[in-house]
Design a protein around this nucleic acid. Structure first.
Lengths: 368, 368
DNA sequence: TCAAGGACCTAATACGTATTAGTACTCACG
DNA sequence: CGTGAGTACTAATACGTATTAGGTCCTTGA
């Protein structure tokens, strides 16, 4: 500490900064102690008795000096900083996936604001791609009272470290690989996926193809489970129902062949990469098929960016905003949680909302 | 202070939460003093000589305890945080204006990451609409080394307070009302607007209407100035050129009337509310006019959300991402600025990029 | 053998507020 | 006049880190 208050600083204001008044300045002005000032201006939670007149004098002095409490000192003294972290695992700040990241962020921010928490966005230090891998990056998270984690690729080891130390955190999105004590708020894909299949069945579809990503994220696994459950329930043929792809092998020919086999509905999923989704919509378009006249189409998740031909695709929406909200709520409960009180459910699923869309219609006659 | 560290907390791990490790914990583990730890982990700006071996022991201990410095304490002790704030003035977190807020955020985040700064999103306390009004909300900003302000409605008094105290901040968007010493990074609307008018003039347009919002944000004023300058330069009639609206009085009739008067091009602006923009596009559509056959249309700013009929409207884009970037760069310069060094330009304008679009064409014959 | 100088660390304190454990004084009652 | 209960306040300390002003050993040279 070199600066003797009020020195340089070179803030935007230009001229030499006036030192801000401290509680001790008020104390001097009002002829009381700093403690008294703190009691008058702070909540006086302890219930210390103070004379009306003293309070008045302190308040007047504070007013006339233009006192504003120093939030930094306040926080230091009260051991909490009312800050939640948000750490995103992906190469850089999500730009392309704006449509999927932003709603979560909005939900997080809303609820954080409602609960009086500020939000620290961790930017994973300088390294670009290394962010999730960098142990130091994850460690920095501890500056916040608790942290939200969002994104697919998770540095399990770092996180386990935090968990062992009892650091409070919540995942946004399901996390099976980390055991049942890891808190998360995910989307409830299973019933929503089953319900899409049911909708198709109600319209007479009997042969369906479900084109899914070729990876094993819980989100994909859940949807598949839902699709299979729905199919079985409604008497839809499960033979060859599930088709895994990285996108490259879904061609117009393949779609036409399915159609020839009597397939009348196609279902796919929406993920970070959207490989399956874009491959399938591309192939349907290339095959010159009309939705829903020739074939019904549904996506398990949000439609592609509006503007595309499939902006009004049927399916369901992932409740990202609500997930963000709930995650914050859960995290705050963990952070402030009284060990005596009953713990909140650590793993929560939020229902998805069905989207009617315009690409599901009655099953056409088997031959195109 | 009641809590004897390490007590409750109930982190996800289930078992009792470990308190975050302090420098003193590291000191104990490494068999040195807290001072030494601070010297090793902090910059050791004073240049105190330390044995290599000691440094190593401290670093190892820090690593194994999972130490992360407490930003609040760091800041109170008057060093720096490497945290920048982002405070948004609007009723709540911008949801509708996602297209305008998100790019800024992305730019801010990118540059912050590049400069090794974390980002605190300030959430303006609990009150929903009251955010900007709440003085306490603005004050909390001080936990960051410096802060970016973004949004139209600015609590001038609070900000002036910060400025007087020498707290570094930067506005995103121009701010005339606060004098010339207030740092901002804005978009350079004037030449971009003039250039749009010039484009129209080059295609033969002579009568134009510029439909602008009925408010006095600098952004709107700038565009008007640019439009007028461009018009004068190119011999476009300035009589009745500028039309102010809150959106309600721009009807299909009015557009037809303009057309009858020989108006061949319409220009509007994009703002937070988009009142003028949506009113005008709505009216043109309702009037059954085709762009650019019957009338040319341009917007000073970004097009409406893609998916709309006017997704390919001509005009220019606001360089939001770049503005975010530059604002961070400027802020960091202010924060780290040596008072001796030459100050960076406090008020910066970033050029807008022309967008050809599909709604500007040659002027049609005067009679429709 | 002693002083000077270097190498290496640490004690003490500051930052501004919150909180706890008192202190000092008054009044009333027995 | 001594005790217990208030009333009205304050001294002391904690929060976690940064910084400055020493301190304690060693060497080294005379």
């Amino acid at each position: 500490m070199v600066s003797g208050r009020g020195g340089g600083g070179g803030g935007p204001g230009g001229r030499t900064a006036q030192a801000r008044p401290r509680q001790s300045d008020i104390a001097r002005a009002a002829g009381v102690s700093q403690t008294t000032v703190s009691l008058v201006l702070g909540g006086n939670k302890a219930g210390v008795v103070l004379a009306e007149d003293t309070k008045r004098r302190v308040l007047e002095a504070a007013e006339s000096l233009g006192y504003a409490p120093d939030p930094v000192a306040t926080r230091l003294a009260s051991a909490r900083n009312d800050m939640l972290g948000l750490f995103t695992f992906s190469a850089t700040f999500p730009t392309e996936v704006a449509h999927s990241y932003y709603p979560v962020l909005v939900g997080v921010e809303e609820e954080a604001a409602a609960l009086g928490q500020d939000l620290i966005l961790f930017t994973g230090s300088s390294g670009a791609a290394s962010r999730a891998a960098d142990p130091a990056a994850v460690r920095r998270v501890r500056v916040a009272d608790g942290c939200l984690f969002f994104g697919r690729h998770v540095p399990t080891e770092q996180i386990e470290r935090l968990a062992r130390d009892g650091y409070p955190f919540v995942y946004i999105g399901r996390r099976d690989e980390l055991g049942e004590r890891v808190p998360y708020v995910g989307a409830d894909y299973v019933p929503a996926s089953a319900e899409v299949v049911r909708r198709l069945a109600d319209l007479g579809h009997r042969r369906v193809r479900y084109v899914r990503e070729n990876d094993d994220a819980p989100a994909s696994a859940d949807r598949e489970r839902g699709v299979l459950a729905g199919a079985r329930e409604c008497g839809i043929d499960t033979d060859g129902l599930v088709v895994r792809t990285d996108g490259s092998d879904i061609t117009a020919e393949r779609v036409r062949a399915w159609r020839a086999e009597g397939v009348t509905a196609l279902v796919t999923e929406e993920t970070d990469t959207a490989a399956a989704l874009s491959a399938l919509t591309g192939a349907v378009e290339a095959a010159g098929l009309d939705c829903p006249r020739d074939v019904s189409l549904a996506v398990l998740g949000d439609p592609p960016a509006s503007g595309s031909a499939f902006a009004h695709i049927s399916g369901f929406t992932v409740p990202r905003r609500e997930m963000g909200r709930r995650a914050v709520r859960l995290l705050v409960e963990l952070v402030t949680g009284d060990p005596g009180l009953p713990a909140p459910p650590l793993q929560q699923l939020v229902p998805c909302e069905p989207v009617p869309g315009r690409t599901i219609g009655p099953a056409p006659s088997p031959a195109p």
